[in-house]
Design a protein around this nucleic acid. Structure first.
Length: 463
DNA sequence: AAATGATCCAACCGCGACGCT
DNA sequence: CAGCGTCGCGGTTGGATCATT
């Protein structure tokens, strides 16, 4: 772990945070909010750079963070979301209240990736490894002979070949922590996973996207295999049905489709310009409906290394648990949020319509591609009368699913949080503030979720 | 019990986007 | 419009911890 350049200049501390530092930061932000991060360390009396303070707060000190192992459904959700969003961890995290992007990223890299590979699924493309390998071979065959050989070599050397590793010597993790059944398909040589992993998530096309052909192919395959699903190419419902029955993950992954569940893929960044629906262009699959109802799964063993348990005063603890986000069954559906077109990122906003219309034949109203069109707010689509009228059950199901499955108990609240809750004199005030903020944030997410659902309904899709 | 290897995860780094002047 | 500061994101790293030999 290096030191920030600014830390070098100012001889600031680096590395792990001491409890005293945590206290200082926590107390300061509790009382004053973070404001400008660069000024926080000075005002809080910390020998850290603002960036470090921000990270510490976001990833560890925030009272709304949920600790403890990821639930099965959370893992499934991450997988589904990753299939859609790629390595956009912050957006994935936005769908998992109380989880940080860093946490999810670590989980993905250390755990889920392996599980998928052991299931014969390329974690980058979410395709079967054999399929990905074929495609990879085709790509390589286009290269010059020299590069081709290098490329081949890198495929074998750079990436852990989990399949072989499993066969030759079961990794400790698989054996003792995550007992998974290794299918024969996992013997396939690992694909060059650089396809996706090396790509910057900032590049929307970087994630190896399931292409239009991919879905068509799968839809047809489903039909060939006699699936009873009504699987029309480019049909979301059909794809989901297929996905449930035939997809890479399969039912044994515990990935079932809950048709009542939708998710918004909004960057929750408070900057309004980033409040965008993630585009449905090439980097996205229509697999927008992650399961929330897993009945069986290969992921049977929770992660290890649970944080030290601390008992909390019973009354306070629930303030920060998942109920903070979920137990508002009567939440108003009115939304002041607008899904704004982003002038700075026209591709994102417009391609939602363009590519979705192209890829899924939703029969969307043709977006007007003029400067004026960019002024059209999403709300004008979303709040138009013909878009209204969908139920809120999807959202409620979503939150209920979280609520029912977030079985984190008080002793799984991270120590800092519990300390915060029990010791801080301003805890009450801050608690209510946080509660309010979190509710707002989650409501915003929920509202957008609803908006997306309305979109789908308006475009003739039953999700 | 010690050594070694594997794994996890908190924290850092670099970069791009954004807002302000 | 350029320059600067700030923020946020994703990739990477290194130390702590765990498992195995």
């Amino acid at each position: 772990m290096g030191r920030h350049s600014c830390c070098y200049k100012q001889k600031l501390r680096k590395g792990l945070w001491s409890p005293e530092e945590d206290d200082k930061l926590l107390n300061y932000i509790t009382k004053h909010g973070h404001g400008c991060w660069s000024s926080v360390p000075k005002l809080a009396g910390l020998q850290r750079c603002g960036k470090s303070c921000r990270l510490r707060w976001i990833n560890y000190l925030r009272p709304d963070l949920k600790r403890g192992p990821f639930s099965q459904q959370e893992e499934n959700l991450i997988i589904e979301l990753h299939a859609v969003l790629g390595n956009r961890w912050s957006q994935i995290a936005a769908q998992l209240p109380g989880r940080t992007d860093n946490e999810i990223k670590n989980l993905w890299n250390s755990c889920i990736k392996k599980k998928l590979r052991q299931r014969g699924i390329d974690p980058n493309t979410h395709k079967p490894l054999s399929e990905a390998l074929d495609q990879d071979d085709k790509e390589i065959s286009k290269l010059s002979p020299t590069y081709r050989s290098n490329e081949k070599a890198s495929v074998g050397s750079n990436e852990l070949n989990l399949a072989e590793a499993v066969n030759s010597k079961p990794p400790a993790v698989s054996k003792n922590r995550y007992p998974v059944e290794v299918s024969s398909s996992s013997k396939v040589l690992n694909n060059n996973s650089n396809n996706g992993s090396s790509s910057s998530s900032k590049n929307l096309t970087a994630v190896n996207p399931p292409t239009q052909e991919f879905f068509l192919d799968r839809a047809c395959t489903t039909s060939h295999e006699g699936s009873t699903s009504s699987c029309r190419p480019y049909d979301l419902v059909g794809y989901f049905s297929f996905h449930q029955n035939q997809s890479n993950y399969g039912s044994d992954m515990g990935l079932a489709v809950n048709p009542n569940t939708t998710f918004s893929f909004l960057n929750q960044n408070p900057r309004s310009s980033e409040m965008l629906p993630v585009d449905f262009s090439s980097s996205m699959t229509p697999s927008l409906l992650p399961t929330m109802s897993s009945s069986s799964s290969i992921f049977t063993t929770p992660p290890t290394r649970v944080k030290p348990s601390i008992s909390l005063p019973s009354d306070n603890s629930s303030t920060w648990d998942s109920n903070t986000f979920s137990n508002n069954g009567n939440r108003s559906s009115s939304s002041n949020m607008e899904l704004q077109s982003n002038n700075n990122n026209n591709n994102s906003s417009n391609s939602f319509f363009d590519s979705s219309a192209a890829a899924f034949s939703w029969g969307l109203p043709e977006p007007v591609k003029s400067d004026d069109a960019e002024e059209i707010k999403w709300s004008e689509y979303l709040h138009s009368p013909f878009l209204m009228g969908t139920t809120t059950t999807a959202i409620q199901n979503h939150h209920q699913a979280f609520q029912h499955n977030n079985t984190y108990t008080h002793d799984q609240v991270k120590p800092e949080t519990s300390q915060f809750l029990s010791n801080s004199s301003s805890a009450t005030t801050t608690t209510s503030t946080w509660h309010h903020q979190n509710q707002q944030a989650f409501q915003a997410s929920e509202m957008c979720t609803k908006d997306l659902q309305r979109l789908a309904v308006a475009f003739g899709q039953t999700l």
